[in-house]
Amino acid sequence: MPPLIDATELSALMAAQPVKLVDAGWRLDGTDTRARYRAAHIPGAVFLDLEAVSDPASPLPHTLPDAEAFGQAMGALGLSEADTIVVYEAGPMFSAPRAWWMLRTFGARDVRVLNGGLRAWVEAGGKTVSGDATPAPTRFNARLDPDALVGLEDVRTALQSGDTSVLDARGPARFWGDSPEPRPGVRPGHMPGAVNLPYADLVDPQGRLRSAVDLEARFRAAGLHETAVPVTTCGSGVTAAILVLALTVLGRSARLYDGSWAEWGSHADTPVQTG
């Protein structure tokens, strides 16, 4: 299935078949996205808390939990891997692709991102409701796809070989080390050999993912290898999923470095480049 759906298509799909809706809003600045969900969401949507659905034993922020924990969390939200699932957020594209990636990585067969999020839904005439949803629990049979992600040593090898593009979705100031990292103990800068492709460059002023033609041009300008499967990274694995989504739109595969800069920048033995 195509990874994106627009608001008009979503309305038609909801009229034709059951669709599970997921508000996956999250913001680095600490915005209370659950309160935003309670104030207004698409009817029937549940709220997926990225922080809560993460590995509690990891010192890193919102890393993937194991398959059993993820399946339990999704089942509690009334989601099955066999459902048609559409994820969105209130605000410009930021965290919904992370939820899309997580669901796909654990076996959801038909999951898409609402391009433009809640704003696009409302502008297309869609209604919203307030309060909390009370989904009927179900079973999500989660199975991790190991090809969807990489670890620190995989990234180190990719950088040393030079034949795999490592695309960093952070903004230029953080990539070049001109601004401090938002997490304590994490050095500023970037991985030597990584390429900066800010996620914001892939999102238009309306908060939507740009057209395929525009995306292709931006990846080409970044020097994306034509054949090797690229690795995407960011600060903590959230906006790296926007690059995965964009590459999927273009018919390409990608692997996400879940630890991202929060892990790489906190290790004493990982090389860091600034300037």
Rank of each mutant, 00 (worst) to 15 (best):
G107A: 05
W176M: 15
G75A: 11
V86T: 12
A148Q: 15
A254T: 06
W261G: 02
T232R: 05
A194Y: 09
G223F: 05
P271N: 09
L114P: 02
W264I: 05
V129D: 14
T128F: 08
R34C: 10
P3F: 10
R104W: 00
T274H: 07
A40G: 14
N196Q: 12
P65N: 13
L48M: 13
A262D: 06
E68K: 14
T227F: 07
A268C: 13
D154Y: 03
S253M: 12
R183F: 10
T84Q: 12
P146Q: 11
P59W: 06
L48G: 02
A16R: 14
N115P: 03
C234L: 08
R36A: 14
A169G: 00
A16M: 11
P65W: 10
Y37A: 00
V229M: 09
T84I: 06
L245T: 04
W121M: 05
G265P: 06
R109Y: 00
G116M: 08
Q273S: 13
T274C: 15
N115L: 05
D204E: 14
R109I: 14
G223K: 07
I242V: 15
Q206L: 14
L77K: 01
T63W: 01
L144A: 07
T157Y: 03
D110P: 03
G125L: 15
L50F: 04
D132P: 01
G131I: 09
D66V: 05
P180F: 15
R143N: 06
G75F: 03
A73V: 09
M1N: 08
T227M: 04
A52M: 07
P65A: 11
E153F: 12
Y257S: 01
L64K: 00
E216K: 14
L79T: 01
C234V: 13
M191T: 04
V166T: 08
P180I: 03
P18Y: 10
W261K: 00
D269E: 13
V150G: 02
I242H: 06
A69D: 13
A57S: 15
E89P: 02
E263Q: 15
L250G: 09
R36S: 12
A35Y: 06
P182K: 07
V186Q: 04
S58R: 08
L149N: 03
R170I: 10
P198Q: 13
S54W: 03
V244C: 15
D49E: 13
A222G: 08
S266M: 10
T128Y: 09
R34N: 10
D168F: 07
D147P: 00
V203N: 01
F140S: 04
T84E: 10
E68G: 10
P56A: 09
R170N: 05
I42S: 01
W121K: 02
S80R: 13
A169T: 02
Y37E: 00
V231A: 04
A99T: 05
D110L: 04
L77H: 00
V53L: 14
A67Y: 02
L224G: 08
I85E: 00
S130R: 09
T164P: 05
D214V: 11
A217D: 07
L215S: 11
I42P: 00
N196V: 06
Q72C: 07
L149W: 04
E89V: 03
P271L: 04
I242F: 06
N115D: 15
G265Y: 06
A108L: 01
V122N: 03
V86I: 06
A73M: 11
P61C: 12
S11F: 04
E263R: 05
V113A: 05
S54F: 01
G177N: 11
F106M: 07
G117K: 02
W121N: 02
Q17M: 09
